[in-house]
Design a protein around this nucleic acid. Structure first.
Length: 608
RNA sequence: GGGGUGGUAGUUCAGCCCGGUUAGAACGCUGGCCUGUCAAGCCAGAGGUCGCGGGUUCAAGUCCCGUCCACCCCGCCA
């Protein structure tokens, strides 16, 4: 086949842009052969480029040469076609595509490149295994679906940049080769040749540097920035991901929330033509844990968790009583219409609950009275009181978990999601919610110390600042006897949750040196350690740091939800597998011994 | 680190429970016919390291053990 090597860089329009207004025009188009229907006499080719698909027709009546050449076209050949746009004959229009009223009659065909037979068809690549799609990502990305996803991603970042620019924010880049941070996730490390034995870390977020930018007086900063965390992957977690990061001076929580709500409103309107109602709903950390058992609730459906401690105490079921006795909780949710489940199906549900950490799952069917192995432990009157509490009715299945509060909430929140899916309760649409009033500190039993729930630079709420400053941290009784005093302290931290995904989180920061110092003491981070790890921030706080705060949004997750994908891999051009491996490029890989020698690095991989 | 699912033709899958002729189907691919298709149609054909290694057996795609890869989840991670 004759390949053309020049003179083809002329394209009048995109294939998907051709309409009835183009009828009669002689045009030249370029693209890939999507599908070919060879009738011997007539040959139809669906020509695809980024803009869409147009049917082009090869007829011996128009051009014998082009028609003959077209017999040899195969899937994904790259071609240039010239010809006249005509209205399709009556009855042959295709209403399923935007260009379906018209077609091109080709009088000149140039084959710009051939293609080997494909490992999977472009049109049904969604059916190919994901491993194969990732290996041949260049083919996978030709799919209109993937092109749409990345185009939307582009539009999202464009709208965000415009929005922040209009609001007076400056996009300022921060280094990718930066300092390892102790708290939080595992760092990706990069060895330094010029400082042997020392390592850069790839940023988990530009947290410290954006605070420095506030001290520097930029007042409003944002950045669309890559972040890196060396932790295990999930459908919504990649080792490198993109954050929309921002920080504002002289701002409190309400300012940050207002800016983000405005951004979301604009984004959904311009990208999806969806009108969002603001302000978004808000839940305190305490309330979301009580009602949904999680800090990232999906508010598109109910099935809320209900406290059952008081009623449990009036029964004699030992598992419940023991849990309460040892300071735990008993809570329940209502499996709407699930009383018909067989014993076996309930066993499966129990197994599922156990995989989430429960010791078991108690159940009561509301069916001809009460059917349950545990009904006998409760007076009839108590059973009757359970029903309205769970909004249950005849035919429902009440599910109970009794354990430590943390386990109860974890198990029931997952069960709630599972039931939501199973019962088809999860509606469409976008349900935003702010989670506020997080505890500032969290007790870590293993390390016998407090940890910052958000991060160590998060400010406590104003009411608690004096309390915190007055604490004598050298008194170790504080951490044992009076521990609850500290777990009650609230942080000026907030998360934004969309459809059950945490898509962002931020806080108002500590901006005074003495409060930051006290925080480190509470977290048992020594003066020396603090100085070594983020001394530069502490120094900066000495020189007139303004009050400031901000937030970081997970761009990948946000776009994933906006395009309706179930994995962020579908909105990232070149994602990695669950083992953080790139099937396309074969990354990571071994390096030349010479490279290691230069860095004085020896590997010591244990051989199993 | 742990639990689960999957790996058989280029692709998607059946066959595996209950071992036994030549491992099938659909799509794709190759060739032929075909002037209104749009998942074109009809005819013919090619195409297999049953992920890999070991074991049991007269005999293994099928049973057992190990291992690799992909995905979902727990732990981890904001």
């Amino acid at each position: 086949m004759n390949l053309i090597y020049g003179g083809y860089m002329i394209r009048d329009k995109g294939c998907g842009e051709i309409r009835e207004s183009d009828i009669g025009l002689p045009l030249t188009l370029c693209g890939w052969v999507f599908r070919r229907r060879d009738h011997g006499g007539l040959i139809f080719v669906d020509l695809r480029d980024r803009s869409g698909i147009l049917q082009v027709v090869f007829s011996p009546d128009v051009s014998g040469d082009a028609h003959e050449l077209a017999h040899d076209l195969r899937s994904e050949y790259v071609v240039s076609v010239s010809g006249e746009i005509r209205k399709r004959p009556d009855g042959t229009e295709n209403p399923n595509i935007p260009t379906g009223m018209v077609e091109m009659y080709v009088n000149k065909l140039e084959v710009l490149n051939e293609s080997a037979p494909l490992p999977f068809g472009i049109e049904d690549a969604a059916d190919a295994s994901e491993a194969l799609r990732l290996k041949h990502r260049y083919l996978d990305l030709r799919r209109p679906e993937m092109q749409k996803n990345l185009i939307i991603r582009h539009t999202v970042t464009k709208v965000i940049r415009d929005y922040f620019d209009e609001k007076g924010f400056l996009e300022i880049e921060t280094p990718v080769l930066t300092k390892s941070t102790p708290e939080g996730a595992r760092d990706y490390l990069v060895p330094s040749r010029l400082n042997l034995g020392c390592f850069y870390a790839l940023p988990q977020s530009p947290q410290l540097l954006k605070q420095i930018l506030m001290v520097s007086g930029f007042e409003k900063y944002f950045q669309i920035v890559k972040c890196f965390r060396d932790e295990d992957l999930r459908a919504d977690r990649q080792p490198e991901f993109t954050q929309v990061d921002l920080e504002m001076s002289f701002a409190d929580r309400e300012d940050v929330i207002e800016v983000i709500e405005g951004m979301m409103k604009r984004l959904f309107k311009e990208v999806l033509s969806v009108k969002l109602e603001t302000p978004f709903e808000r839940l305190s950390f305490h309330e979301t844990m009580e009602r949904f058992g999680t800090d990232k609730p999906d508010l598109r459906f109910g099935l809320e968790l209900k406290d059952m401690v008081d009623l449990s105490e009036k029964g004699s079921f030992k598992v419940f009583l023991d849990a309460i006795q040892s300071g735990g909780r008993v809570k329940a949710i209502n499996g709407k219409g699930m009383a018909g489940l067989s014993r076996k199906e309930i066993d499966l549900l129990t197994e599922e609950a156990e995989s989430f950490g429960a010791k078991g799952l108690a159940w009561i069917k509301v069916k001809n009275g009460f059917e349950s192995p545990i009904a006998k432990f409760f007076p009839k009157e108590i059973l009757r009181q359970m029903v309205p509490r769970l909004d249950a009715e005849e035919g429902d299945l009440m599910l109970f978990v009794a354990d430590k509060e943390k386990v109860v909430h974890n198990v029931l929140s997952r069960l709630r999601l599972e039931l939501g899916k199973r019962l088809n309760l999860i509606g469409s649409g976008y349900k935003f919610v702010w989670i506020t009033d997080f505890p500032l500190l969290e007790w870590n039993d293993e390390e016998v110390r407090f940890e910052a729930m958000h991060h160590p630079f998060t400010s406590p709420v104003d009411e608690d600042i004096e309390k915190l400053l007055s604490v004598d941290t050298s008194n170790s009784e504080l951490f044992t006897v009076h521990r609850s005093l500290f777990t009650d302290i609230k942080a000026k931290a907030y998360d934004i949750v969309l459809n059950g995904y945490e898509i962002g989180g931020g806080s108002i920061r500590i901006y005074r040196r003495e409060l930051q110092k006290k925080m480190f003491e509470l977290l048992r981070i020594s003066e020396e350690e603090a100085r070594m790890k983020f001394g530069f921030l502490l120094d900066a706080l000495e020189y007139g740091a303004p009050p400031h705060g901000g937030i970081a949004l997970g761009l990948d997750r946000l776009v994933m939800i906006m395009v309706g994908a179930t994995s962020i891999r579908d909105v990232i051009a070149f994602p990695k597998t669950q083992k953080a491996f790139c099937l396309l490029s074969g990354t990571p890989s071994a390096v030349e011994p010479r490279q290691l020698k230069e860095l004085y690095i020896k590997t010591d991989v244990p051989i199993e």
